[in-house]
Design a protein around this nucleic acid. Structure first.
Lengths: 252, 252
DNA sequence: CGTAGTATTGAATGCGGTCAAGGCTGGTGG
DNA sequence: CCACCAGCCTTGACCGCATTCAATACTACG
């Protein structure tokens, strides 16, 4: 937990901030501080409550819990899900480093979904009251915050398209391609990565059953589109996967 | 188009503003000016570019068009839809008076969906650049704007739940109940209203076919849940409809 | 090595889609 | 007034995709 030999601390920065500052975070070009100068980034750093660790399977927030903060993922992966009145889960998204959690809670001051870590993860807690004050002073931050909320709206519209209009094969291809591009944006290989979620979670998200996902994986494997080993995925023909996503015929 | 006898114009207000101001708009308790005092409402009024009429079937904005303004619906109904790469439509929402259109465009400065009037409608054009300046000065407006964006996120999550988790009967019941509550919030009867959209549009939105919608309407009619005449709908057993929405068994 | 959770595969079923025919409604024009 | 037409809706019969049910295999972990 504690460093044996703390590095010299520049004025105004606590040890905590030294360990994890926006400026030194690899996600700062995707996350909330995008486009801020050093001074503004520093101001943002100072309102961040704490860097919180969430163990695999741990809960970041729960439906109905009072809303106080947004959370920027520093490291790891999360899922968010809603509950049907009858208790069934619907996963509404898988979030990765650089993405913001909790924006759906602003409307009612209560969280509307559960957020669970898919692996050991770390988030930056951003108290919303403090953020609001900062937004007034920092037009660039205001603008980017609005972009991030808007992006979430757009993302969800894409899922609606997927769930409302696409066949199983198309949905699954779109899912893989989406993950691929997000890893690419983060500097990882777009063609080789690990699924952080179970088959069941993928199926739930895509409105399909676990068996369907399993069959689709086998099918794509057989067609030479993917190499699959447990949760390790390799895209052997990304262009073709994109074509399937786009609705081009899946056979041949 | 023009009034024969213009009323006396108070200082700072144009004729246009006189005819349609936030303060006198029946939607101001739901719309962007919610909770503003008269002075602030007036400032908001002054940035509103114009009140624009859109005829039934007319386009408010198109996918790819540059984003300049948000639109508050003053009167009428709209649908928004996305396009599959293969050209298929997916309706992502039906919007009514007091709701805000165009928030998905903030992220990329381009619209991500088409917005079409379902009947002769009127919107208030809110130039986004001007709105941003106002947000800095008016904390209440900033807060409510964030609430409205957040609400849109929450709404879409609800649709994801519907599309990903519910059966046809449940989806359709949820759709009717949702409309009902929105009309109620606007002071209209929750149990008797007109559908502004075709069966085909309902089906598209719910991820079902027009035939399924027709069959579901007949089924609900037969079960004494609805009275239906063309697009006129009467809810005869709202409680039961809500129960179906909640996943309670649909038979018996 | 045993167990629990997770994933794969096969066979049968059923919900909602597809295809097809016909009805209703509202508008237009003879 | 009625005839006609186009768009929208309803209903029926059949079909197919994804689910359900069931059995088995794999993997991680003690």
């Amino acid at each position: 937990m504690n460093q044996a030999l703390p590095a010299p601390t520049p004025p105004g920065a606590t040890l905590e901030h030294l360990r994890a500052r926006c400026a030194t975070c690899s996600m700062h070009q995707l996350c909330l501080p995008m486009g801020l100068d050093m001074a503004d980034m520093d101001r943002l750093d100072r309102i961040i409550g704490r860097r919180r660790k969430v163990a695999r399977g741990g809960t970041l927030f729960r439906i109905g819990a009072p809303f106080g903060s947004l959370y920027a993922i520093r490291l790891g992966h999360f899922k968010t899900y809603q509950l049907n009145p009858d208790g069934a889960e619907q996963i509404t998204g898988f979030q990765m480093a650089g993405e913001l959690l909790g924006m759906d809670a602003i409307s009612t001051d209560r969280h509307h979904c559960n957020a669970i870590a898919l692996e050991d993860s770390e988030v930056c807690e951003i108290p919303f009251a403090s953020l609001q004050q900062l937004l007034v002073d920092m037009p660039a931050l205001l603008r980017h915050f609005h972009r991030m909320m808007s992006q979430e709206i757009t993302r969800e519209q894409g899922v609606m398209l997927l769930l409302g209009n696409m066949q199983a094969t198309q949905r699954f291809a779109a899912f893989i391609v989406n993950l691929s591009s997000r890893y690419e944006a983060r500097g990882y290989s777009p063609n080789s990565f690990q699924l952080r979620m179970s088959r069941e979670e993928i199926g739930n998200y895509l409105g399909l059953t676990i068996e369907s996902i399993s069959r689709l994986l086998s099918k794509f494997k057989k067609e030479g589109l993917l190499r699959v080993s447990n949760r390790e995925i390799e895209l052997l023909n990304p262009a073709r996967l994109k074509a399937i996503t786009a609705g081009t015929q899946t056979c041949g």
